[in-house]
Each structure stands twice: as structure tokens, then as C-alpha cells.
């Protein structure tokens, strides 16, 4: 049976999501778009055309062929945090998520951490070293992001294929560890 597997690459604006997707994908990252009508963003004001104007969100994705019949898709979340219904679509049935973190702007990744934590979706936080040496220790980053003790924290360089691969490996290991072993 031909199967697909999804991993979500999240994090705040400018944390390197598309860079990570591009460094491990076997294809140039592709972009797809979704049009959000006023209904999808929860606006119920039907008076006037202005409120019904459509908003377009773009998302980048890549793919990794695992076997002849299993393909892994990596979906970057849209830059804007507020389009949660796209996050829901990306997360449904996903293995889990990598939340990229820029230590100069930790707060930009907070919404992503919160999103996956609340929904019980496995995720790892990945500090993107691209932005230079991290001035914080691991406990400091954990505390700032309010990461649970079981959430793995990794250091990566999203430009580097091997480093991005390791972050994906850590996520899949983490997701596996949360599935009860079959007796």
C-alpha cells in the first residue's frame, strides 16, 4: 500500500523552516497555497465585501522517499502564526513536529511550542545555530520556552543536511518512544 508520512516544520517567522526543508528534501522545496475565506478565519461579519476578501497563505514543503511505497513529506508552517486551521491540516496524522528556535528571538517560537504541547503532538525543539553561538545554556532555553521535561531539545544548523537529518531522527525516535510497545 502506498503510504505517506508527514512531519511539520514549525517555528516563528524567520527561524529557518524553509531552509531546513530545503537542506534535506530530495526535491527543490515546492510551494502550495490555500485561500482563506472570512469563514475559515472565524469572521462572521457578513456586512460589506471588505470582510469577505480572501487571504492567501503559502506553505513550503519537501519530500524524502523512504521506500518504494513510503514517502515522507516535510511541511513548513506558514510564516503567520494566526492561521491555525492550516496548522490543524498539517498536523492531522503527522508523526510530529520540529519547532525551530532562534535564540535571539525565543518568543517567536512560543506559539508553536504551545500549539503542539496543548494537542499532545510529539515535537522536538531545535535551536538553529545559523544565527551564531547560542548565548544560553540548555536549561535556560528550556525554561524560556517552558518546555516539558520529556521534550527533546537539539542544536542544529538548518542549512546543513546532516544536522537537519539528525533533528528529524530525534523527532521520530521521540514519537516512537511515546507509542506503547505491542505486547
Amino acid at each position: 500500500m502506498h503510504r505517506s508520512v508527514k512531519i511539520v516544520i514549525a517555528g516563528g517567522f524567520g527561524t529557518g523552516k524553509t531552509t531546513l526543508v530545503g537542506s534535506v528534501s530530495e526535491i527543490e522545496p515546492l510551494t502550495t497555497e490555500e485561500t482563506l475565506t472570512s469563514a475559515s478565519v472565524g469572521i462572521d461579519d457578513l456586512a460589506g465585501v471588505e470582510s469577505k476578501r480572501n487571504t492567501t497563505v503559502a506553505l513550503d514543503f519537501g519530500r524524502i522517499t523512504i521506500t518504494d511505497d513510503v514517502v515522507l513529506y516535510l511541511f513548513g508552517t506558514p510564516g503567520q502564526d494566526r492561521f491555525w486551521f492550516i496548522w490543524d491540516e498539517l498536523s492531522r496524522g503527522a508523526v510530529g513536529a520540529i519547532v525551530l528556535v532562534d535564540t535571539r528571538r525565543l518568543a517567536t517560537s512560543f506559539a508553536a511550542v504551545d500549539y503542539f504541547e496543548r494537542r499532545g503532538i510529539p515535537f522536538v525543539a531545535a535551536v538553529n545555530r545559523f544565527f551564531g553561538e547560542c548565548p544560553y545554556t540548555e536549561p535556560e532555553v528550556r525554561e524560556a520556552l517552558e518546555l516539558g521535561p520529556d521534550v527533546p531539545l537539539v542544536w542544529c544548523d538548518a542549512r546543513d543536511r546532516e544536522s537537519s537529518k539528525q533533528a528529524l531522527v530525534r523527532l521520530v525516535q521521540h514519537a516512537l518512544s511515546r507509542i506503547p510497545a505491542v505486547a
Binding site: 505517506s4 521506500t67 513510503v70 515522507l72 496524522g93 503527522a94
Partner: peptide, 23 residues
């Protein structure tokens, strides 16, 4: 259509893990 829903079972995750390690 292949499998309609994305897969998240143990066996599939193990395949993905092995696949990533062999990249």
C-alpha cells in the same frame, strides 16, 4: 488513491527512522 490518511503507527515510524538513518 494510496492510504488516505498519513501513517503514524510504530511499524511505519520504524521504517521512516531507518530510512532517515540511511540517507
Amino acid at each position: 488513491v494510496g492510504a488516505e490518511r498519513p501513517m503514524e503507527q510504530r511499524e511505519t515510524l520504524q521504517l521512516v527512522l531507518d530510512g532517515l538513518l540511511n540517507l
